[in-house]
Every structure is written in C-alpha cells, then in structure tokens.
Design a protein around this nucleic acid. Structure first.
Lengths: 198, 198, 198, 198
DNA sequence: TATGAATGAGCGTTCATTCAT
DNA sequence: TATGAATGAACGCTCATTCAT
C-alpha cells in the first residue's frame, strides 16, 4: 500500500522551497547555498537531502516551476498570428531564461533530462513549450506548410537558445536578442517569399 | 613600453599546455587537475596561475585549440554539396563537442565569450565555424537562396547545439544526433519543395 | 535552543589539540602545519576549520594553555618573599615566553585580545598573572606599600616584557634577561632605600 | 677606495621610498606590498631587493624615520618638569606607535634589533628615546634620585609599551592609554610620598 | 644595477554530500 | 524523518624572495 505522504513531510518540503524562493528573489539563483536554505527553514542539513536528491534537484524544481508558470501564461493568451506576435508571446518565458547565466545553464542542462531514467519537470516544460508552439503554428494560417509544425517548433527552440547564447557574447553585442530572434524566425517560419536582404 | 614576451615564458606556457593535453588524452577533460599539470611540467603552482587566470582559462584554451584544429581540417576539404555532405564534413567538429559533457558545457559557456571585454579563442572558433559554413553555402549550388548564407550558417550552428543538447536527453533517445541534425538541415537549408512528411 | 555540544565534537577537538601538542613538542611552534595536524588526527582539513577559525586560533589555545599551566604551578607554590624569589617563581612562565620568538609574538599579540569583542584565553592568562602577582605583593611583607599591589603587578608584567624584548636585542646582549629583570624589580618593588648605583 | 654611491642608485632608492611613503599614507603600513612599490616606481621587482635586504628592511626604514622625526621634535622642546609634561612631550612619538597594530608589532620586533650583527635604525631610535628621557630626568628636579636616570628611562619605555599593548585589549578598555601611563609614571618616577590610593 | 619569470609551501576555503545516531 | 558533525578534494591564492640573464 502506498502510504499517504505525511503532513509534516509536506510542510517541511514546502518550507524549504519557500525559503529557497525568498533567497533566490534576493540574491539570484547562482548564490543559493544549501546551508542558507536549511538555516532559514530551521532544519538540519541532512533533512534537506531527505527531501531533494541533491541541490540541483531543488534548482530544477525552482526554475522549471517559474518557467512553467510563464509558459502557462503564454498558453492562456491568444494564438499569435505571426513571427512578431510569437516572439512577444514567448518573451516572458525567454526573458527568464536570459535573466541569469546560471539559470540558462541549468535549463539547458536539464532541458535534455540529465538522467536518462526519468523525465524531470524541466525537460517536461521544454517539451510543453515545443508542443504549445507547434499548436500555434498548426492553428495559425501565417506559417509555412512544407515542414511539419513540431519540427518547426523545435527549430524555434533552437533559435531561441542560439539567441540567448549570443546575448552573452562580445562579438554580437550589436544586435539585441529579440532582433536576432526575429531574423531567424522570419527565415524559418514564413513561407518562402522573395529573397531576404543579406 | 610593451616588452616582447620572453622566450622562457613561451616555453613554460607551452610545456604546461603539452602536459595538460597528455593528461586529457589519457583521462578526459573533466578529470584534469591543476596539481597534476604543474607536477608534470615540473613547475610551481604559482607559475601556473601566472600563465592562466584560473583552471578554466586553460580549459578554454585546450578545448578551443582542439576545436579549431578539427574545424581547420573541415575547411581544408572540398565544399560539401548537400546536407549530408555538410553533416559529414562537420562531424569531427561536432563529435568532439559531443564527446564529453564537460567539453560541451565549457564550449557553450565560452562560445558566448564569458567576458564581454575580450573575445576568447572559443568564441573566435565558433565564429570561424559560422564563416566557414556560410562560405560553403554561398559557393555550393544546392542550398536555398532566399536567405543570406551567414544567417543560414548561424542556423546550422543553432541546430547543431540543439541536436547535441537533445543527445543527453531521455525524451529523445530514439533518434540519434545525426539523424535529427539531418531533419533540421533539410528543412532549413534546402529550397522549399513539396511538403515534408510530418 | 542552545544545544549541548555533542560528545563527538569534543573528542575530535581534543584529538586535534593532542596531536598539535605532540608535534609542537617535537618541532616547536613555528614549524606547526595544519596539514600535519589533520593528518595526525586522522580527520579532514575541513574539520579543522570547523573547530578553529584559523591556524592562529589553535596557536593561541596551545600557547595560552601552556602558559596557564605554568602559571598555575607558580600559584601553587609558596608566596615569594622578595624580588629574587618572585623572579624564580615566575621563571617557568617567563622562560616559556622566551623559548621561541614565535611564541613571544603570538603571546604579545593575543595578550591584548586581538578582537575587542571577546576576551581570549591568552588575555585571560595575562590577567591572571597580574592578579597572582598582586596577591603575592599584598600578602608578602617585603614590598613597598605606597603603590597599590595591582599597579605594582602590572609593572612587573611590563618589565618582564621589556626584558624579554631586549633579550632578542643586539644592543643589550651583555646583560641576560633575569639580571635585567632584577634591576627593574628592585627599583620598582622595594621600598626606597639608599640610592642605587648608576 | 670607497666608491661614491652612484647618482642613479640614489635616485632609484629615493623613488622607492617616496612611492612607499605615498602608498602608506593612503592605505597604512600593513597593506604595503612590494609589488605596488615597484610598480609605482617603475622598476622591476629584483631592483627592489638590490636596494633593500627584504621588505621589512624598507618597513624598518619607513617606520623608524617617522619615529625619529617625532622624537627629534620632542627633543627640541623644553625639558619637561613632571610626569604630565613628559607624557605630553612623548605623545606624538607614542601616538605613532599606537596608530597601527602593524607599526607597533614591527617597532617592538626591531626595537631589539632583529639581527644581532647590526644595530638597525629602529633600535637606534629606541635607544635615543631612552637617552633623551634619561637626560630629561637627570636635568629636571622633579624626579626620584634613588634610581639612576637611565634605568628610570628604560622603565618609561617599558610602561609605554605596556600601555600601548593594553590599548588593544578588551579587558582594559575603561582606562585610556594616557591615563594608565600616568599612573605608571607617577609610581615609577616620583619620589616616594604618602601611599597612593588603591 | 636592473630585469621579471619563476619559486614555494601552505593556508584558507568551498559546500554539496554522507552517515552514524 | 531528522540530526549535524564530518568529509573531501582540489582550488585559488599569496607574495616575499631568488636567480639566470
């Protein structure tokens, strides 16, 4: 029989998450230390590891939760009818990924589910994002039809990561993230028209 | 007055790099320890830090050098005349990036030049790769013409990273890296033809 | 809630101190290395720094303990009845201070409690020494009465430090520590009699 | 024939001292690093050590020069005619010793000439101070006569050091340095009168 | 004298993680 | 579940000093 998780357990876990979120809000993700979390929650270090496999498990939970929330808000809006609308709709989602180098690193690492055994919440969220965008593409009339929507959606994700990566780069400072994203998506999502300017 | 770097300096630095490369060849990048490098080179620890800001600075140098060498070999070959040829030509380059999680992480982190102030060798190599691919696309007759070659080349890089990322992923184990890469590039590089199968 | 220090904690700390004392007995204080202490105690380096703020914290503890022990032995003896007896009674205490330049430096530095916030064991021991000497002076009949005993005792300490300092000095090699100490104390502690010889 | 020291040599040395003094004026003695001195003087590190045996040799020079200057000013004034006047006359000298923990430590260490072989400028200055005070005592009519002036002067130095030491001490914060110094000197320098208050 | 690369030896630190209680 | 002392394995650093040129 699967025993119901005890109430105290949930309380402890919730408190750990709460404290962690408060610390992150103040100092950012990269600065989070397990020691501070347990101190804030008033539990011992060992307790933390009874609830989370390791620190990254908490990190994945925090980051993917934030990401999922932003994605849900995007999904609740209207179907974007073009490249610019899509970029705007995804901005909160991508903006969070760009907010901190550490967040981007963790997201990237877990986007591909670090452990083969299980699909973590981060990988799930990335997957959900692809599904959402594929749905948009399928339902909207403004995109190319010669490539399946889910492949196009994966491309959107690839270009987003590329844009975010280059945002940290000295060679490409000139062009801001959204502008570069727009160039990619115009070429990737729109039906082939007249040649684009070089 | 800017003094020319002394000969001894270059010798010491070269020896450190040599030893590090030998160690990496034996145990991989993730296992490299500064202590072993200095021991092998027969210099003091302080000397190491007089040559490299920290361990990662050496790492960037080692990895970007390997990457640049593989890229140079790719550039020395014939211009690939299609998607499959291009994937094959870039395979050594991408294969190295996929060889070790640690390598991929460092490469990605430094691809966007950690410091805005200076463009490191890694960022330069990534840039060179884009330039090479753009040249291929421009000179070959088999690719779409409605998008400028350098934008297409950036897309190739984005899809490569996407493929490599997903290679570590539980959700997408089914499809190997090159196969996924092929799907992306067919859609991205070829002139629009009849609709692709979903 | 202030939890009682666990037994294991005390054991570990005691072992660290024991090992350090053994090493010091063999090689002196200046030669003590943290690495040897932890190796000898069979604990990790991190453990050392969980018990002592830094190496000097251990040093203060070791030296002040030795000093306190020697002081206690002096206090257990009979009340000295004159300058020579007092110098003799304090000899083990002062001799330890003079035994090693490093010991003298640490003692002097911590005698004034490096941190205003807390009174360390070293400062306490110095204080205890003054108290002890003041008691001797008060109870003995051979010393001047026109100056309060505790002020006289502070003077004894001042002259001791002066003597020890000059012991390391080229200008004053001729006169050994105890001899100089004697001149000081005769002038400082005895009731004024006929003029001393210049 | 003793060759006259070359002009360039003196210039370099003077520049090193100047730069060091400027740095000390800004950041204090403890923060002085050889690297900054040579950088400021525009010479190589090795050059520094061609002029000064080690860093402490420069330190001794800087500190003893300052101390000697302050002592000279004290010597240029009138002979103090009592304990309070003497304390006032020596205040600039003692104040400098108390200005920085590091200064006090170095002064104490070198007061006794670290090297037996040579009497450094610091030991000389301390000696000069004793001589000056002994002269004051001998020429003034207000001090005890049953103890030779130079012994009394050594005692003044011992009490000064004691006072300065205790100034860094938590146990004795209540009583300021000069007040404590006064108590010592009244008991030490004045002819025995009626018993002092306990 | 002047140069400056190299030395060296250990300190302090880090902090996620484990494990005996 | 909870505890928290202990672990560990490098890393980064320091910086006065030396020495071959």
């Amino acid at each position: 029989m699967v025993r119901a998780v005890q109430k105290r357990t949930l309380q402890t876990r919730a408190r750990l998450v709460e404290v962690a979120q408060a610390l992150v809000a103040r100092d950012g993700y990269a600065a989070l230390r397990v020691e501070d979390v347990v101190a804030g929650a008033g539990v011992a270090k060992g307790t933390f590891f009874a609830h989370f496999r390791d620190k990254e498990a908490l990190m994945e939970r925090l980051i993917s939760a934030e990401l999922a929330a932003r994605l849900a808000r995007a999904g609740a809006g209207p179907v974007p009818d073009g490249v610019d609308a899509m970029i705007a709709a995804l901005e909160p989602y991508h903006g969070f990924l760009a907010s901190e180098r550490y967040v981007f690193d963790i997201a990237l690492r877990y986007s591909g589910a670090a452990q083969v055994a299980e699909v973590g919440p981060m990988a799930q969220t990335f997957e959900d994002c692809v599904t959402l965008v594929a749905g948009w593409i399928a339902r909207s009339g403004g995109f190319r039809r010669d490539v399946p929507p889910d492949l196009l959606a994966e491309g959107v994700q690839a270009f987003a990561i590329q844009s975010l990566s280059l945002q940290f780069c000295a060679l490409h400072q000139a062009e801001a993230g959204p502008a570069r994203m727009r160039r990619y998506l115009v070429a990737w999502l729109l039906p082939p028209g007249p040649a684009l300017p070089g």
